[in-house]
């Protein structure tokens, strides 16, 4: 396994995992825009993620879907996909060659999520982990607790006759929230694509779920009076919420928090851990101080949310 200009490459299997540029064969951990790009000749994805990937790469692309745990031969390597618990259809990629096992986890979380299969620990020699939230200040409250405060906020807004604008990543996070919503509180509207639908005159106050990019735009302002909130792990820090001039921040992440990162890494039994995305440095140093071999791996695309 090596890092090439196009991305992470597996020589024995002649394929890339989440390549940055078009390649012959791409194995995709999940369909977020920093991981899946159109233009490659052939894609491999988990069955549950097929439709999301299809939406990104277009109807012409060659997409092969595999069940979780089903082992495939790619060149000399045995490849299987295992649930990562990140978003619907997200997968860890297990690659075995010559008795060596690698697991490329993509993004993952350990919290329960009604929209996707739970993270499955896979034993390996080398584990590639994300570190989006690789600092001990990132510790997620139980999702049920976050939803309870979200509901309280929504209910108070309904009572005050205000709209509730809740921003969330439209791929994954939004579906997760919708699946946990208490629909008895009021009407719900979901905005996933652009152009976003206009507000209708005479609309009752409602919860509008929208992509974060629509915050503080002419579109969002037509919902006034409204209270605004964002659901993301970054909302653990007051500064990130205040800087965006949001009224509320709900800590709900599809990434692993610090305790989960350590637990997941431990469960793999890996001798070597590659760390990519986010707070690479601190996690590498921590792992080394705890007797594990760890290296920082650069990623071309870093997402903010």
């Amino acid at each position: 396994m090596e890092l090439r200009p196009n991305g992470l490459y597996c020589a024995p299997g002649d394929f890339y995992i989440d390549p940055w540029e078009p390649v012959e064969r791409a194995v995709i951990t999940h369909a977020h825009p920093d991981r899946a790009h159109p233009g490659s000749r052939a894609y491999l994805t988990a069955r549950a993620g097929e439709s999301l990937l299809r939406a990104v790469v277009g109807p012409e692309a060659l997409v092969e879907a595999a069940e979780y745990g089903h082992s495939l031969k790619l060149g000399g390597a045995a490849v299987s996909l295992h649930p990562a618990g990140h978003i619907p259809g997200s997968a860890q990629v297990r690659v075995e060659y010559d008795g060596e096992v690698w697991v490329v986890s993509g993004d993952y979380k350990l919290e329960p999520d009604p929209t996707c299969a739970p993270f499955e620990p896979v034993r390996c020699h080398t584990f590639l982990t994300e570190a989006t939230y690789g600092l001990p200040i990132f510790r997620w409250p139980p999702p049920a607790e976050t939803m309870a405060s979200t509901h309280a906020w929504w209910r108070a807004n309904q009572e005050a006759g205000k709209n509730s604008l809740l921003y969330a990543n439209p791929v994954g996070k939004m579906q997760r929230i919708v699946a946990m919503l208490d629909r008895s509180i009021g009407p719900v509207e979901q905005v996933t694509g652009l152009p976003a639908p206009e507000r209708q005159a005479g609309d009752l106050p409602r919860l509008v779920l929208a992509p974060p990019s629509l915050h503080n735009t002419p579109w969002s302002r037509q919902f006034a009076p409204a209270s605004t909130a964002l659901a993301a792990g970054w909302m653990r820090i007051r500064g990130t919420r205040r800087r965006r001039a949001l009224d509320r921040g709900f800590v709900l992440s599809d990434h692993a928090d610090w305790p989960s990162l350590l637990r997941a890494i431990d469960a793999t039994g890996a001798e070597t851990v590659g760390v990519t995305h986010g707070f690479r440095g601190p996690l590498v140093r921590w792992l080394e101080e705890h007797g594990r071999r760890a290296v920082a791996v650069d990623a071309r695309f870093e997402s903010d949310l």
Binding site: L135, I237, F279, P282, R285, W286, E289
Partner: peptide, 17 residues
Amino acid sequence: AGVPDWIFGECFQAVGD
């Protein structure tokens, strides 16, 4: 908190408060 000294600095940089 049971964490090493150096990580406090990293955390402070991320939080700013």
